[in-house]
Design a binder for these strands. Structure first.
Lengths: 263, 263
DNA sequence: AATAAGGTTTCATTATTTGGAACAATCCGA
DNA sequence: TCGGATTGTTCCAAATAATGAAACCTTATT
């Protein structure tokens, strides 16, 4: 037996440590100084220093000599291109998102699960043109977004338990579910219902309906949501969009399964 | 003295090897089997196997159990979001690209240099909406694209020499420059001229004019190009767009320098 | 000029990676 | 159904690379 499952705990080997450092740099969202990183990482000075050097050499980080700061490197952009095309639903789902966007005229998100968090891989704005990398690649919490709850609800039991454990419950709004028990009950309800709602749990005034994208075998591939504001629409109004949403989710699932690379 | 410069040769340490494997997987552009990778990498079986396991554990690769294939993982997409925002000119350049696109009505590329290759970080199509990750993150050759030549021309002498060495000259068309000497002469001319042209060197019927984006100190930050086809326009026609192009390049450079992160 | 803070290098110790070879599982043609 | 490939996985002693405390530079600060 082997563990092919996703790394819940920490680091295997040097590579793991290096990648943790990558995350640390990326998480900051701005160029970081050595000392800042040192404060957060629990590696000794010399170790962290060498990891940073290696990553910089490899183009995974860039180092600004003038300001003495590290930032994520362009090699990532190149690699991500491949990842987005191959491992995300986005390229397959694109035409379906376009159609749904046209039909409902609201903001649409396509998301997948990554390390207990929601990773947005594509988006359509209510009207405006789409926003490149600045939107795709964004992450969000699992426990208080429509897509997050939709995906977690349909995870196999043990994966679901792991995912719940990874949540860092924080009360973004008065309606946020702030503990594992409440979340579990909600997920049961979602599983029964087939879709999930975000009832202003992440942001005041923002609501959404979301559906999981499930493979024929029931595996969670991702989730799809329609988002709006309480000023434009209501939860009941979103409920009316449910058929369009679930149909699109089904179509994406089918397309993904049938297209699995020619060869 | 230290080597902070980019890795021209190969691997430092385990991390380097792991990242090489990442490249190998990403380069294929489709899910890969263990044996395929084994054939190309010069690592022994067991070593490659463990590297793949580590990367999979880390979410840098995904493993499809059914098909026994590896593909780039979603963790990359998350990291790339940060990279694109912080290390690329794209977020800063966006409004300028929009304006230029509006003005000239042709395809526009924003590129940066990565390991001797051209990395496209943003794009505007002649008319259609833009194309997310499917366009950003793409790579192209340095020696036969307008942006590639524009950037190489303005590199410091030793970096330029390195970059030229990394080119894998291939005659895409009869007009492609196919050796280092021809390329060097061309780069001299470009440096004198201030802009570069792609005279159907990469693809028959496709021409472009490109300008480097240079910092106040003369460092190459990227390049900007306007692309068209010989059916729509001519090299002389592109020459007329030169002022718009170089002005935009200058504006982007200024914006990039003045905005260098508040803090 | 002295002190502090941030960053870089050294080197003996320690832990991880290595890879040949044995092992298991799966596929294929007869 | 049976060999014989082919492909993927595990072992373990030897080789190698990572470690981190401390010393050492190098800029800022007073």
């Amino acid at each position: 037996m082997n563990r092919q499952t996703t790394n819940g705990g920490h680091a295997d080997g040097t590579v793991g440590k290096a990648l943790d450092v990558m995350d640390l740099v990326a998480a900051r969202g701005r160029p970081v100084r050595f000392a800042e990183l040192l404060a957060e990482s629990d590696h000794p000075k010399a170790t962290l220093y060498r990891l940073l050097q290696t990553l910089t050499n490899q183009g995974m980080l860039t180092y600004d000599e003038a300001r003495q700061t590290y930032a994520p490197g362009l090699r990532l952009v190149r690699l991500a291109h491949a990842a987005w095309q191959q491992s995300s639903l986005a390229p397959i789902a694109r035409p379906f998102l376009d159609a749904l966007s046209e039909q409902v005229g609201e903001t649409i998100h396509l998301a997948q699960m990554d390390q207990g968090q929601v990773l947005y891989v594509d988006k359509r704005n209510a009207r405006k043109p789409i926003d490149m990398f600045s939107e795709a690649g964004k992450i969000g919490p699992g426990y208080c977004t429509g897509v997050g709850k939709a995906m977690m609800a349909f995870l196999p039991e043990d994966d679901r338990a792991k995912a719940i454990n990874m949540q860092a419950f924080f009360a973004h709004t008065p309606r946020t579910l702030t503990d594992a028990e409440a979340l579990e009950r909600e997920l049961d309800a979602i599983r029964a219902e087939g879709v999930s709602f975000d009832r202003e749990e992440h942001e005041q005034g923002i609501i959404c309906i979301a559906a999981p994208i499930l493979s024929a075998t029931g595996r969670v591939m991702g989730a799809l949501s329609i988002t709006t504001s309480t000023q434009r629409n209501t939860l009941d109004g979103l409920e009316k969009l449910r058929p369009a949403l679930t149909e699109t989710a089904t179509k994406i699932a089918e397309a993904a399964e049938s297209w699995q690379f020619p060869g």
